[in-house]
Amino acid sequence: MNAQTGAAARELSYAEAIREAMDIALATDERVVLMGEDIGVYGGAFQVTGNLVEKYGTDRVIDTPISELGGAGVAVGAAMTGLRPIFEFQFSDFATLAMEQIVNQAAKVRYMLGGAVSVPVVMRFPAGSGTGAAAQHSQSLEAWFGHVPGLKVVQPATPEDAKGLLLAALDDPDPVMIFEHKILYKMKGMVPEGHYTTPIGKAAVRREGTDLTIVSTSIMMHKALDAAQTLAEEGIDPEVIDLRTVRPMDRDTVLASVRKTGRLICVYEGVKTLGIGAEVSAMVAESDAFDFLDAPIIRLGGAESPIPYNPELEKAVVPQVPDILEAARSLAKGMI
């Protein structure tokens, strides 16, 4: 049972949970359309849309040409004029082709027009490394979008949140960017039936602890939980936070945890420099929680390189469980 909705839950994969959210939205809201490359009969590059085209037809599950800029712009224009488009980028890397429409238009139109319109577009970005697809199909660009006022940026880490955040994004009057880690698509988890939303802008404490805080995003949340188990056996009691939303960031949850533990590790897959960890760290440093820090902050992020092809190299450039363990141990021992 889901505490929020009272609905029964059953096991679904992350991809199935997203598809179920889109199915509910298409069934209950005529304004909803899906747009993207090969999301129709092909079912999407990662089979997220699956067979929805059979159920809702090509007028509502729309295969776009390979035109990321134009496609994103059409979604923005449609959102400004009454539709609720869910636009899928085949890989988040391809959003670089559409930055103009996302950054200059979707994010800014409301402000530029003094609040006269909203842009309720939802964009989905399959992101992250681990598939052997190398440098142009493996990036984690969420921090780019998090830098843009006017956008909301979420990173669901579980099937339940993947569905809940997508439905919340559809309820949201402003553009919401959903970064889905490709490796998570096949991960299973309990997902409540029916319509429910996961609040945007709210982090989740996945494990309570007293000795240090690990703020994690997306797939790194699972690695942080793995590490936490080992650490607990060693007598180190970490608190693991799943950030869930990159913008607007949940200050309260992060700061409360740091005030409690006095130690902070941020772990995220995007490139370390100028990334999410920098924002989380600065948020702590600028707040009263600074006075509760009892050690320097550690950021674990992607290496300063593109994602390599070789599988060992690919692993080496993003944080792994042993990296988290090492960081946590050195923090807990007061070695740094």
């Binding site: 359309v33 800029l69 134009g70 496609g71 994103a72 712009g73 059409v74 979604a75 923005v76 224009g77 449609a78 959102a79 400004m80 004029t81 539709l83 488009p85 429409q101 238009q105």
Partner: peptide, 8 residues
Amino acid sequence: PIAVGAAL
């Protein structure tokens, strides 16, 4: 593209 979206 926004005009095309409005037309859509």
